[in-house]
């Protein structure tokens, strides 16, 4: 390797080792520690005894994690919420991606921009907009009351419904972009040929368009699923007190209970849950770091 390449490679490597790999190793280490009074609030995992390092790993946190229904329920719930949200994003996003991919070429980039634009208003402020819509004295209730469909405000905010709406709203572009990338590369002649050979429009979609777009569907669903599993802000602000997702549990363990070892064990469990979808995303062909340089 040429000498000048060493610093170019060393800088990002060292950065990732110090600020990504080492912190994750610390999380795993502290997940085996016991909480203690003091700063920091845990007993050290590594102690020095007569010049020898003594590693004391205590699996108690993981025992609690597996035995206490609360944690398992939160994990399961997060997976279900993320799965249903990515399904909802697919139902809403697929027609949008298909419409943009089939739009006149001059429109496509503008339509895509239109889809991404709300993204740049700020995540929290988009959640704010939904609070205004869903409140008891908010827009939706106001409209329904005015029309006379209901006589008392519906409880919309702080429900699972509000949480799903918020997650779909926040992550819809993650679904549309990979779907669009896939659908726009699909040769329309294939669909035309299927049509000429007597397939109905539904048949063309089911036998040609959908199968060919499946890698994009998988990539989009994983791109929604992965951030949604660990989501904290939306369940906290829009979901009810019962919407205990794993991200929220981790936050509570850390900030409210000051139980850093338990928060670390929850973090390791969350990491474990993410391994499968991350591997699927890697395989879906939308690999973001391909080995073109090799």
């Amino acid at each position: 390797m040429k000498l000048w390449r060493v610093p170019v490679l060393a800088v990002p490597w060292c950065w990732l080792l110090v600020f990504l790999v080492a912190p994750l190793a610390i999380v795993v280490g502290i997940s085996f520690a016991q909480p203690a009074d003091g700063i920091p609030p845990y007993a050290p995992v590594l102690a020095w005894h007569d010049g020898w390092p003594i590693l004391s790993l205590d699996p108690a946190n993981y025992a609690v994690l597996l035995q206490d229904r609360f944690y398992l329920a939160a994990l399961l719930r997060s997976v279900v919420v993320a799965g249903l949200s990515s399904l909802a994003c697919l139902l809403l996003g697929y027609p949008m991606a298909l419409a943009i991919a089939r739009a006149p070429a001059a429109w496509r980039s503008r339509l895509l921009l239109l889809v991404i634009l709300p993204f740049w208003t700020g995540f929290l402020l988009r959640v704010t907009a939904w609070i205004g819509l869903l409140r008891d004295d908010g827009w939706i209730n106001g409209a329904l009351l005015a029309v006379g469909l209901i006589h008392a405000p519906l409880r919309l905010l702080y429900t699972d419904f509000a949480m799903y709406v918020g997650i779909v709203y926040a992550y819809l572009p993650f679904m549309i972009l990979p779907l669009y990338a896939r659908l726009s590369k699909l040769d329309p002649a294939l669909e035309a040929a299927a049509g000429d050979l007597g397939e109905s429009p539904v048949g063309v979609f089911l036998r040609v368009t959908w199968p060919l777009s499946r890698p994009g569907v998988l990539a989009g669903m994983m791109l929604v699923f992965i951030p949604a599993v660990g989501e904290y802000v939306i369940p906290e602000l829009l979901g009810g007190p019962g919407a205990q997702t794993i991200g929220r549990v981790l936050w509570t363990e850390f900030f409210d209970n000051h139980d850093w070892p338990m928060a670390s064990a929850v973090a390791v469990a969350l990491l474990g849950v993410l391994l499968v979808p991350a591997a699927l995303l890697q395989r879906s062909g939308s690999r973001r770091f391909d080995d073109r340089g090799a």
């Binding site: 490679l9 990002p12 490597w13 990732l16 080792l17 110090v18 600020f19 990504l20 790999v21 080492a22 912190p23 994750l24 610390i26 999380v27 502290i30 992965i226 951030p227 599993v229 660990g230 989501e231 904290y232 991200g247 981790l250 936050w251 850390f254 850093w260 928060a263 670390s264 973090a267 969350l270 990491l271 993410l274 991350a278 995303l281 890697q282 973001r288 770091f289 080995d291 090799a294």
Partner: peptide, 26 residues
Amino acid sequence: RAAFTAALAAPLVLPDVLIGLSLLLL
């Protein structure tokens, strides 16, 4: 190279709560 690629891709899929907690502990 493979490890570098994997480490570089990790922040794209790691949840915020995990990145935040791990860096604070660091």
